[in-house]
Design a protein around this nucleic acid. Structure first.
Lengths: 156, 156
DNA sequence: GCAGTAGTTTTGAATAACTCATAAAAGTGG
DNA sequence: CCACTTTTATGAGTTATTCAAAACTACTGC
C-alpha cells in the first residue's frame, strides 16, 4: 500500500472522491495538517504561504467542496468563525476555550455508541452527535484571575 | 393579576437577579415560554404582540442581559441564528433538524455525569458540556423523498 | 503535446446576524 | 413624586459567509 496513514497523498485522495486535484485544494489540506482547527481566515494566511494570490472567497469554496466529499469537517461553535479539521474515523469530541477560542480533540470516552443515542428523537433520524465541552483553558484562567481580584466560582 | 397559567412570576424572578423588571424583559420571557427555542427574530414577532414598537436591537440587548444573569440560555447550532430557551436545572440535550432548523429537548440518558466528563481536558476547566444530535425530521425527510423520486417506497 | 470541456477559482457584490455608541425613556429607592 | 441609574431605542457599523458570472485550469482523448 502506498498510503500508510502518516503520509497523505492528497492529490490521489482528492481524485478518489471524484473531485479534481487543484493546487488550492492540496494547499488547503496541507495547511489543515500543520494548523488543525483553523478558521477560514487562518487558513487563508496559511495557504498564502504557498499560493500568495488566493482570496478568502476561494478558501470558502475550497473548504465547502472538501466538506461535501467528506475529506474535512466543519466545526461550528457559538457565533464565532467556523473551524475545519481533516476528517478521521475515530469519533472524537472537542474541548473549547470560550475565552481564546482554542479547540482540542478528546477521544470519546464511551467508545462509539452511548453518547450517540438520544433518549427521544422527536421523530428525527439522527446521523451525527456533537459533543462539545466548553470551558476556559489554564492560560486564559490566569489572565482572568489577574484581572479580577475577587474569587470566582465555576458552576458544574 | 394577569398571571394566567404562568407559574413563573417573572418580575420577581428578574429582580431577584439584580436586574430591573421591565416590560420588554417580562414579555420576552413570556414569549419564550409560549415559543420555546425561538430565534431573536421569532422572539421579535412574539414580543410585538404585546409591545408593537420593540425593535430587533432591543431584543438582542434584552436576551443578552437575561443570558448574563442565567434566566435564559443561548443555543448556537451551526451558522444559523442563535436560539434561546428558559434555563432549567434538568441537564437536557437537543435534537436538531438541519433541514428546517427545528429543535427539541431530549433528557440526558445517562443522568448528569457521564456525558459531562471528557477523557482529556487539555488543561481546560470545563463547566458546560453540550450534546447536540443532528439529523432530519420525518417531515423534512418526506419532502426529500418526494423531490428525489427514486424507486424507493416509504411505507407509512 | 494539444485542444476540448467540464470542473474550479476568481471577482465583485450582497446578505444575515449581530454589535456598538449615544440619546431618550423608564424603573426603583428614598 | 424626585433623583438617580439602568435600560431601551436609534442609527450606523462589523464580521462571517454566500452568490452569480467571468476567467481559468485540470483531466481526457487524440
Amino acid at each position: 500500500m502506498t498510503n500508510t496513514g502518516q503520509i497523505n497523498d492528497w492529490p490521489s485522495r482528492i481524485r478518489a472522491t471524484g473531485l479534481r486535484s487543484t493546487r488550492q485544494r492540496v494547499a488547503t489540506l496541507d495547511s489543515l495538517e500543520s494548523f488543525p482547527h483553523a478558521t477560514a481566515d487562518e487558513l487563508l494566511n496559511q495557504v498564502r504561504l504557498t499560493l500568495p494570490a488566493i482570496t478568502i472567497q476561494s478558501i470558502y469554496t475550497v473548504v465547502q467542496s472538501l466538506v461535501d466529499v467528506g475529506l474535512i469537517r466543519k466545526l461550528e461553535f457559538g457565533s464565532t468563525a467556523a473551524r475545519f479539521e481533516i476528517e478521521r474515523p475515530d469519533n472524537h469530541h472537542h474541548v473549547h476555550c470560550r475565552q481564546c477560542g482554542r479547540i482540542e480533540d478528546v477521544p470519546c470516552q464511551h467508545g462509539s455508541a452511548p453518547c450517540m443515542t438520544p433518549a427521544k428523537t422527536h421523530g428525527m433520524v439522527i446521523d451525527v452527535a456533537d459533543v462539545v465541552y466548553h470551558g476556559v483553558c489554564t492560560q486564559c484562567l490566569e489572565n482572568v484571575d489577574a484581572d479580577i481580584t475577587s474569587d470566582s466560582d465555576v458552576s458544574a
